[in-house]
Design a protein around this nucleic acid. Structure first.
Lengths: 192, 192
DNA sequence: GTCTATACCTTGATAGAC
DNA sequence: GTCTATCAAGGTATAGAC
């Protein structure tokens, strides 16, 4: 077998791990599988990354391209945000692996960090007022709900739904969380 | 050690398994742990239930008490539904274990079934019109988002938030999904 | 400094004695 | 119906070859 530099081997392990973790998740991916795909052996995987969990954390990252969020007016932020989240293909595998792996303490911490940075912060940055933080967190929960329904549960009817209609409907809901009233009856006169 | 009847042993294994799976999840609970807690041995656990996964499926069930949903007027259904879901303590452990275990094919099927029966169906039963199904599924996603944020991610600010305020805010949002308009600007005149 | 061979321990599952 | 012994797979560690 060809001798590679340490860095090259490390990288091949990383690539193999990233692929398998995304496709099969943490639990169903063995260190031996990763080693085989990287054409090396399990011991080396551990030697380079310490533990399977650390390797997982090293490879399961993503950042959304939030540029499309900056130029949109606040009234259309909801729809745009849903559009952005659903458009970035690489999110799905990582998100799924993180959610399903969140039994492990460190993976849960990573999920929290990504939730905060990807879903809470971009929203809160656009809001003001005393309830900006709560609104942003509720909005993040709503966004998480869509990913949960589509990717974790795999609600077949939602997956089959027209993409634009889904974005419009769910975007409107998210918009409500951002800029809508708090009371349940927005069009009625406030009580008393 | 005292000899028990087969049925009694089965039941003790079930109780031990239910507790450990709820507390630690599927991956972090070993058949040996379950056997130890049930004061028996691993072989018997497998003999009685086939595999660890089948034992998991046997014990991880829940049904919500949907009686409080039946007498509430549709305009208040959103808030009431959130209230009910957050009030039933036994949901949390099972829901979490199912989500995190959904890497396993059969566990995912169970999660889908529970999602459908617990979150989609009660909502759809109260709606009419051509978009009743989509609305119900989107509403279920919204509800799932709250459980996800609270229990999977454990958003600390949301967990610390005033329970009634959270129910009011999130309930209003859910209500929007049920009976609100589809367009993003509910208070404005419809375009053209 | 890189890598291979090997072995250790835990875990899910099975076989066979009682 | 119950238990002991055992296996195979998987995560991890280490010794030593190159």
């Amino acid at each position: 077998m060809v001798r590679r530099s340490g860095e090259a081997t490390r990288e091949e392990i990383r690539v193999a791990a990233a692929r398998l973790f995304r496709e099969r998740g943490f639990a169903r991916t063995s260190v031996r599988d990763i080693a085989a795909l990287a054409v090396t052996n399990p011991a080396l995987v551990i030697r380079h990354f310490g533990t399977k969990e650390l390797l997982f954390l090293d490879t399961m990252r993503f950042t959304i391209d939030d540029e499309p969020l900056l130029d949109v007016p606040l009234e259309r932020f909801g729809e745009r945000f849903i559009d952005v989240v659903l458009s970035q293909d690489d999110i799905r595998g990582v998100y799924l692996a993180l959610v399903r792996g969140s039994n492990e303490a460190q993976i849960k911490v990573r999920l929290q960090a990504i939730h905060e940075r990807t879903f809470v912060e971009p929203v809160r940055a656009r809001l003001a007022g005393p309830d900006a933080d709560v609104r942003a967190r509720i909005a993040a929960a709503v966004v998480g709900g869509l990913l949960y329904a589509l990717w974790v549960v795999e609600d077949e009817a939602l997956l089959a739904a027209d993409r634009d209609e889904l974005i419009a409907r769910y975007g409107a809901l998210l918009q409500q969380a951002l800029t809508g009233p708090t009371s349940p009856r927005p069009t009625a006169a406030p009580p008393r």
